[in-house]
Design a protein around this nucleic acid. Structure first.
Lengths: 212, 212
DNA sequence: ACCTGAACACCGTTCAAGT
DNA sequence: ACCTGAACACCGTTCAAGT
């Protein structure tokens, strides 16, 4: 399966001078702007470079190929969501498990909704670009924070196993993605949030109950 | 958002003579084969045509553009999964709700696992190609069958509302996708199946309980 | 009604030359 | 250390010509 063997998505070199750092930042922003104004299949390396005010050659000095660029932008987006989740995990320490889940899931959903446009656009391009790897990394990262948080719940004898937490995260991130792409109304998104909380709470309750 | 305005993915014309039907079928199969042997970003319209034993011009007679071709192949894959789900819904009529959910979710997971390779490959290309629309259509279709089935459960006063069923489907399809792309082992996939059943059962139990 | 394949426009990527 | 942009290979799509 040659399409699965994707490994080299790291930036080609790291900026050491200040103008280079500026350049990379400009390329990042230009990518998102081109994505919005021209759409995914008119996102051209030349267009991104133009918009960033540099030449294509410069772009290729920092990103080995177009995929690496998109990968990096996608990664940045998911990192921002992860930070919000981790902050919620910190705040919810010591609360009852159901309240924990509520707070974390709501933080996740809110973060996604705030950046709904970017999220939809990025998922569209990320799939063909090694995005699955980023999603996996993000789930592991958030899963760790959630596991640690659940360890402080007074009403839980032992936290659920890692796998259950990861499935839960895969489920809500998948569900979220599907609904966002369908372009839900604000009312639908509110109901979605409420139901994702229910889904996670009931699943966690079941999983922690059936442990011995 | 120009990237969201995707509408014309229908085949350009329908084959009326027999050799034309053969041609279209050959193009379909060639697409999947090229996807496997060359990977997503080496999938070329010329390569597909070559493999199918026709010229590019012929391919473009039936599919207005590359995206439409990939869209059609993706749609076919999801339709096959839907059929399996609907068959399970038929079989499970009259059973208790928990048994229904188990049977349907297992049918879904099994169908996905059997075609794991194709599923992963197709999701990768489908995202940039209007695949969200197909996913939505599939969820609505399966949701309808599941709703009807739940209406025959003796232990349920009233079936859960449509939205809850759709969220459940979005969650398991998203979760499934994420795990498949991460390339789970057979043991992991077995555990995944078991947990997706638990997740759906507990969510459905919660949602039907809190109705009035 | 269906098929062919050369031709065109455009895009990803490189690299010799510049500051 | 960083930037430029013309040049090259390749891909999506078309269309005049064929059966």
């Amino acid at each position: 399966m040659p399409a699965n063997t994707i490994t080299a998505f790291e930036p080609r070199k790291t900026p050491v001078q200040e103008r280079a750092a500026t350049t990379v930042q400009a390329i990042f922003e230009a990518t998102i702007q081109v994505l919005f104004t021209h759409g995914a299949d008119r996102l051209t390396t030349t267009r991104v470079a133009d918009r960033a005010g540099v030449s294509v050659g410069t772009l290729y000095q920092y990103f080995p190929h177009k995929q690496a660029l998109l990968y990096a932008v996608f990664e940045k987006h998911l990192d921002e969501v992860s930070e919000r989740v981790e902050a919620a995990c910190q705040q919810a320490r010591g609360k009852p498990a159901a309240a924990m889940i509520k707070q974390v899931v709501e933080a996740y959903v809110d973060a996604k909704i705030e950046r709904a446009d970017a999220s939809v656009a990025l998922y569209r391009v990320a799939a063909g670009v090694g995005g699955a790897e980023v999603v996996r990394k993000t789930i592991l990262r958030s899963g760790k924070a959630i596991g640690a948080m659940l360890g402080t719940a007074p009403d839980l004898e032992s936290p659920p196993d890692k796998f259950a937490v990861e499935i839960m995260l895969a489920a809500i991130s998948g569900g979220m993605q599907t609904v966002l792409r369908a372009g839900g109304s604000p009312a639908q998104l509110r109901k979605l949030k409420e139901h994702l909380v229910l889904l996670c709470q009931s699943y966690m309750a079941t999983v922690t109950m059936s442990r011995r």
